[in-house]
Amino acid sequence: MARSEEDLKWKDLETGCVVSDAGNASQYRTGDWRSLLPVWDKTKCIRCGVCFLFCPDAAIRKTSEGYFEADLYYCKGCGICVQECVTGCITMVEEEE
């Protein structure tokens, strides 16, 4: 599971802030950037998976029913999924805190 940088205290940082463990990009909370949230309307979705393919952060996952949803730790709210969805079933909505 991803670990947020917010769990780190200053003493946890290595000298010069080097990163010595490889493969840690998954810890990077791109979800912090988001101001708009993609919302799926399942009634129009044909489960083609195009949104899944186009998401630049691989933030879209498949649900057990075969539909798609965003993982909010990573979804940066770029709206590319909305642009690419073949049936227009995704909309960006103002995010409430």
Partner: peptide, 28 residues
């Protein structure tokens, strides 16, 4: 050296920091 660029023990130097960690980096 404390840290070195060494292909056998790779490290990232000069990584990007989000607002969530920059303050800690400066404190250190």
């Amino acid at each position: 050296p404390v840290n070195t660029l060494n292909p056998d023990a790779p490290v990232t130097m000069g990584a990007f920091a989000m607002p969530g960690i920059y303050t800690e980096a400066k404190k250190a």
